[in-house]
């Protein structure tokens, strides 16, 4: 059960960062930490002790494999995560060019 707990701790660290940090880059980093913890959770759920890589070997029928379905779902999610990060970073760099700061409270004050 300990890997599940560590995975949940990672999620909580990311959540704490998203809520309390004032720097936009730090918030983006915290979001990607939360993402990583969900990927890890899916991979942990599909693991079977003694299972092999999910690549079928015709020479050994009846072999125990780890669950390929969570892995397929995470494969999609990882690539979407890259798309999210790059879009977020593009928005952040535009905000910096306009307001010359990463501090979200200062940006709110500058907007009036």
């Amino acid at each position: 059960m300990i890997p599940y707990w560590m995975c949940f701790a990672l999620f909580l660290v990311g959540l704490y960062g998203v809520i309390t940090r004032r720097n936009l880059v730090k918030i983006a980093i915290s979001l990607s930490i939360m993402e990583v913890s969900t990927f890890l959770f899916f991979a942990l759920m599909g693991y079977i002790e003694g299972g092999k890589f999910p690549i079928v070997d015709p020479a050994e029928p009846g072999q125990l494999y780890v669950d390929p379905l969570p892995q397929a779902l995470v494969l999609t999610a990882i690539v979407i995560g890259l798309a999210t990060t790059s879009l977020l970073m593009a928005v952040i760099i535009r905000i910096y060019r306009k307001y010359k700061t990463f501090d979200i409270r200062e940006i709110r004050n500058l907007r009036g």
Partner: peptide, 18 residues
């Protein structure tokens, strides 16, 4: 360690890029 080589390959590329 969790026997997911495809995910490891994709993650190492994606993480380097991000």
């Amino acid at each position: 360690l969790l026997k997911a080589p495809d995910l490891a390959i994709v993650q190492i590329v994606v993480d380097t890029m991000s």
